[in-house]
Design a protein around this nucleic acid. Structure first.
Ligand SMILES: [Mn+2]
Ligand SMILES: [Mn+2]
Ligand SMILES: [Mn+2]
Ligand SMILES: [Mn+2]
Lengths: 218, 218
DNA sequence: ACCAAAAATTAGGCTTGCCTAAATCTAGAA
DNA sequence: TTCTAGATTTAGGCAAGCCTAATTTTTGGT
């Protein structure tokens, strides 16, 4: 059994890797709110444990063993988020913080019981895919809402859960997974994206729109 | 926010205190599976934090502040046990181990949600009282089953949850809180206690009978 | 009252993870 | 190609908790 710190590092490395290749010391340092020197220390330790490959000055990359653990932690996290939302009615902007703690103490038995109770969900309340029990991660083909052209219609697939306040705001606008959106206009020079959702129009900042992933209709 | 270790020590001190006055270094050392020297170290630390009074060579005693924290942890533990049993169908011999981990990560919000969902229970699956939100611990007047005379009838109130195997055994016999028992005979010289429960008779070792607390009928 | 065994504390160390400050490496601009 | 700013690592430390071995205190039996 790994420590909470090891699990958090592996999870962060997995997520950063998914957002683009090699993972730098700085990016991990920021993600985990820890000094860069601390990251170097842990990188060496994880390398010795064969959970990452650490090329000094060049970043880290998960080994298959490291990825396996990362996916287990992420599965715990997202199942817990789903369970809290579904069974206890916790609003979607509060589940992440709680799951960040529970993910480390959830036993495999409780994991299975929650999974059963929920009917084997494949995505969490923010639309993020839940890794399967065998460690398979469903991979969807999604675009950022910020990249759509005016006139395009799509379905919200996933919303970044890193910022609770943002989730609360988007929730008020009715921006949830499975909801249909139409881009009315997309201003140039990194300007706002105007969307129509549930019959209402809203203008979103370009950055915010980038946190929303969408899939094709149907 | 206290560390997990501090919470575990305070909880253990509370429980040992409830079983009889001053708490020795050795008793804590055994309860927590930690070397006596480690207990002394923590005792000094807790004393500095004003959570216990530590009289060197004489043991420790909770201060009101320490007791408050202990009761919060115990409330978390017992609510989680109740929730797991009720909502996820976890058998009573498995809930304790899980709750021992969850108790440290449960937020006050989740505590309240579970409490609501359960309908404000006053005792856990083993019959142990759940401290109220205000820190009040219901105190019942109970006797050990091992102390009853032949011919007496009583109601099971509480079963020690320290040994999962024992719980499984007692469960098979139908020994649960709220069930009626009658003592058929109580052998002398620390001999077995024979009881009738649900129409069946069973002989229990004296020590086992001591782990079962009973209350008066009605 | 004494003395030995048991209980508790002190002394010294170890691991995990974190930090700051100093050194070193890398990469992009000139 | 050089140089410097930024990224990274190294060096040295600290706090929490745990351990074993040595020492001190308490206590119960004689
Ligand atoms: Mn975490
Ligand atoms: Mn999520
Ligand atoms: Mn615990
Ligand atoms: Mn219990």
């Amino acid at each position: 059994m790994q420590t909470k710190a090891v699990e958090d590092y592996l999870k962060a490395i997995y997520e950063l890797q998914a957002e683009g290749g090699k993972v730098s010391t700085t990016s991990l340092s920021e993600r985990l709110s820890v000094a860069p020197a601390s990251v170097t220390g842990m990188a060496k330790k994880l390398a010795k444990m064969k959970l990452v490959v650490h090329e000094p000055y060049q970043g880290v990359e998960l080994t298959p063993a490291g990825e396996k653990i990362a996916l287990e932690v992420i599965r715990h996290h997202r199942l817990v988020e789903s369970y809290l939302a579904e069974a206890l009615g916790v609003p979607w902007d509060k589940v992440h913080e709680e799951a960040d703690q529970w993910e480390h103490v959830l036993s495999e038995e409780m994991e299975d019981l929650m999974d059963d109770k929920l009917g084997y969900p494949t995505s969490d309340p923010h639309g993020a895919p839940i890794p399967a029990r065998d460690g398979t991660m469903p991979k969807a083909d999604l675009r950022r809402l910020s990249e759509l052209e005016a006139g395009e219609t799509a379905v919200i697939a996933e919303v970044s859960d890193h910022d609770a306040e943002l989730l609360r705001y988007l929730g008020e606008l009715g921006i949830f997974p499975h909801v249909e959106v139409r881009v009315i206009s997309s201003a140039p020079f990194e300007g706002p994206v105007t969307i129509r959702i549930n019959g209402d129009e809203h203008a979103l900042g370009r950055e915010v729109a980038g946190y929303i992933l969408v899939g094709s209709l149907r």
